[in-house]
Design a protein around this nucleic acid. Structure first.
Lengths: 276, 276
DNA sequence: GTTCCGCATGAATCGATAG
DNA sequence: ACTATCGATTCATGCGGAA
């Protein structure tokens, strides 16, 4: 094939389909399972009280198919029920750890424009969890790929290096100190934090996506290189796999409902790969 | 008493002191307990593995002293250890529910300026949890008190004003157009979300763990009225109780260490109550 | 009076080194 | 092997002095 990458879309129940995927073959799993996206009737309508036991066999398969240095990002948010936040998400974290997953980090998606509404006992929910799990402590991470422009601080002050930083740097033993300072002086980008402040954009598409392209894009940049493989076992309308294709990553998307599967197929077909 | 409100500061271990506080007498508990293994030289550094069992007796007392329609806000963040996020905070949530607490909501404090640093496997941590617990589903909440002056759309409307209009507006003080702009600013208030985007406090160098006044202030406005009572069992340098005094709420602050107790005393003494 | 700039310093985390 | 200590890394903010 010219492009060198492949995009596989599979119609079916990921509890079964995942069994056919080879072990240690996936670099990044990025997914937003039902309930995070309110698809209540999918998968027979999982009740919150049975969510953990429903998810665990899937977690086991994901653990199998992920490469040792790969990463699993789970986008999820518990619903409020009877005036309380339900506990199935935090229970799931504890159970996935028992399965062998490392709970490496919890990123926050801070939604710029969240769903409107008003309730007597709570405000609008403007954030979701992006739980990071890994198989080992030494996973691939390409931090430079997601650096962001420096804040007002340096833009206004012409990238001044504080005296403290100079002293701290000078005090370190060994060679290479001058080079490091030079790098600092010319730097205009900084590493991001574990909070992603993104809008939930719905424009330019005729359906409402669960999350904006920028969300999977950020994690694909951070945890994979071109030619790596991204898996989304709950593909939905195909955002993750479509973005993966655009970024020249191999994609495997699994979706149970024909309606979503066909939508994803057509959306992904339309998406061109980025030029080399 | 002229002021009509009282501020009680108690030097001692809250595990003991709380027993002397009458049942159902507190409207709001806002506290930031020592984080596991932090402030070792001060609180003796509770180890992560024993954090839950250390906190539970305190949770029991807090449940007793809180009014049925009162609220308990717990500011906390788990540390990273051996490359993983520790689970003691989410375990604490589960255990507090077993104690009878309702886990009503989880607010996020998105820190504008988080601690710097770089590691091979994670980014800077820019958020903390503000866990909301209640005794009943029908608690006091004064949402109008924390409405934010400008929503996104109002902000955009102001930005869309031409520069000429802005100049004309400032040059014609009291003109009809100027009043309308002022009205936009005053009138277009929207309810906030469950994410608070605030900077940490860096000016107060006497205590290592100060959150900005705006943090307790927001929750005091949201969950209490003038004359209500606010409790902070881990007072530290006294931010919560000082803000409560300024806002004409009764305050009860408990602190174990004489050093912080005296600091809190002097800071709170300096703080004037807001005029009626 | 503003604006600008120098500077110290944080509820951090990891890896290496030492006991 | 396991724990305790230490050095290295990093950046937004507010204060105070200067222009």
């Amino acid at each position: 094939m010219m492009s060198g990458i492949s995009t596989r879309l599979i119609l079916g129940d990921c509890r079964e389909v995942l069994k056919d995927i080879p072990a240690s073959s996936i670099d990044l799993i990025f997914t937003s399972p039902p309930y995070a996206d309110r698809r209540k009737n999918t998968y027979g309508g999982i009740s919150p009280d049975h969510y953990v036991e429903w998810f665990l066999p899937i977690g086991q398969q994901l653990l199998r198919v992920l490469k040792p240095d790969g990463t699993f990002i789970l986008n999820i948010k518990e619903k409020a029920e009877n005036g309380e936040r339900h506990t199935y998400v935090i229970e799931l974290i504890l159970e996935l750890r028992k399965q062998g997953w490392l709970w490496t980090e919890e990123f926050i998606w801070h939604k710029k424009n969240c769903y409107p509404g008003k309730w007597p006992n709570r405000f609008r929910d403007a954030w979701e969890r992006l739980l990071q799990f890994n198989k080992t402590r030494h996973f691939k991470m390409f931090q430079e790929e997601v650096m962001v422009p420096m804040g007002d601080w340096a833009e206004k002050r012409l990238k001044n290096l504080s005296q403290t930083d100079k002293v701290r740097d000078t005090s370190r033993v060994g060679s290479g100190f001058g080079k490091r300072v030079a790098n600092w002086l010319e730097r205009d980008k900084v590493y991001p934090t574990n909070v992603l402040y993104l809008a939930t954009e719905t424009k330019n598409r005729n359906h409402s996506a669960v999350f904006p392209d920028a969300l999977p894009e950020w994690f694909i940049k951070l945890f994979t290189k071109e030619g790596d493989t991204v898996l989304d076992p709950f593909m939905g309308s195909g955002t993750t796999i479509r973005v993966a294709k655009r970024m020249r990553r191999n994609g495997i998307g699994i979706e149970l409902l024909p309606k979503y599967f066909e939508l994803a197929e057509s959306e992904i077909a339309k998406e061109p790969e980025r030029l080399l």
